[in-house]
């Protein structure tokens, strides 16, 4: 019951990336309106067995990034460019049929709201076995014992009985577990989790996070964790990408980023979270303004109007990426710098 968490994991540092996203751009265009760059040149790597976090607030493009990689964006009204090389193939140029084959078998996704991502009129068991029937060519008979095994593995009590339940009969935490079971049905090599615990209570969140952690360690699946919660990132991710206004503004290893954040936005985020282990009365220092104040990246740093470290260059030119695929930031006047 009580478990002590593992220490810093030096896993996956040197191996070839499993997913390599380069200069991903997603542009939305609505009739009669200006183009909106939801994702504006995002690059990152995910190695086997590694957990990579995409962190940011609403509107930073983290969810759109994952949907674009999965080929799940609505067909009309958007443009996707760049590349997402998964195992030597560019996912962005695959045909819809080929992408469907990858989805669910090689790459799986977990969504924020488990109730709306499960089909309400099909039993949990059918939904899990269906994935295996579709991708592994199993018969329903062969798939059922595997489904029971999966449900048990994700910690659903009395899995045999649960097979016959419908999603509304399960609690939120159990639904999310069922969804994870579905995602794991075909042993995917990459798992993308989009705010998987945001709709859940903290005690349930702790259960789900522990489960995800365990799965990554046991199966070697790579995990892309999309979240707004830096606390979740701190406990789970090996590498963290902080997104702002559609661009990665800072990247670093888990310990490095939290110990020595360079970008003022990362610093601002960390300073604006009330911490359970801080004394009362310590004033929070919030990031002023809101994303509505952003400048366009084309001729400035989008964060400049809200930034405490702003210098002249910030409102005149686009800050370039300083660093590599492991550590770096995008700022003219970074903070800290002792690492």
């Amino acid at each position: 019951m009580t478990q002590t968490q593992h220490t810093n994991r030096p896993r996956g540092g040197s191996s070839e990336p499993l997913l390599s996203v380069r200069d991903l751009r997603v542009t939305f265009q609505r009739q009669g309106e200006e183009e909106f760059h939801a994702v504006d040149g995002v690059s990152f790597d995910v190695r086997p067995g590694q957990t990579v976090g995409l962190v940011g607030e609403s509107g930073c493009g983290k969810s759109v990034t994952s949907l674009a990689i999965m080929g799940l964006l609505p067909g009309r009204g958007n443009r996707v460019s760049g590349s997402a090389i998964f195992d030597g193939e560019d996912l962005l140029t695959l045909s819809p049929a080929a992408m469907r084959d990858r989805r669910g078998s090689e790459i799986a996704m977990i969504f924020q709201d488990p109730l709306s991502s499960l089909n309400p009129v099909i039993s949990i068991g059918r939904q899990v076995t269906e994935v295996m029937e579709r991708h592994q060519g199993l018969s329903r008979k062969q798939a059922t014992p595997k489904a029971v095994e999966l449900l048990e593995r994700v910690g659903i009590p009395d899995p045999k009985a649960r097979l016959l339940n419908y999603p509304h009969q399960l609690s939120g935490g159990m639904r999310q577990r069922a969804l994870i079971a579905m995602a794991l049905a075909c042993n995917p090599r990459l798992l993308i989790a989009d705010e998987p615990t945001t709709a859940l209570d903290v005690t349930i969140q702790a259960q789900i996070l522990a489960l995800l952690k365990e799965l990554v360690v046991d199966t070697g699946t790579a995990l892309v964790m999309i979240t707004h919660d830096l606390g979740v990132v701190a406990g789970l991710c090996d590498e963290v990408n902080v997104l702002y206004g559609g661009k990665v503004v800072e990247r670093g290893g888990r310990h490095g980023l939290f110990r020595d954040p360079r970008h003022p936005y990362t610093v601002g985020l960390l300073n604006s979270i009330p911490r359970l282990d801080a004394a009362r009365g310590e004033k929070l220092s919030p990031v002023p303004g809101s994303v509505a104040d952003n400048l366009p990246w084309t001729s400035a740093c989008a964060f400049a109007p809200r930034c405490s470290q702003v210098v002249d260059a910030c409102t005149r030119e686009t800050p370039q990426w300083e660093g590599d695929q492991v550590v770096g930031h995008r700022c003219f006047n970074p903070m800290g710098g002792t690492r």
Binding site: S171, T203, A206, R275, D277
Partner: peptide, 27 residues
């Protein structure tokens, strides 16, 4: 105790070292 140990802290060092009490089941 369980509630307190479930709240994620944005500090990897705290996260790695602390003891978590995971509750089973639902409300």
């Amino acid at each position: 105790r369980a509630l307190m140990s479930a709240v994620p802290v944005p500090d990897p060092q705290v996260e790695d070292s602390r003891e978590q009490i995971l509750l089973t089941g639902d409300l």
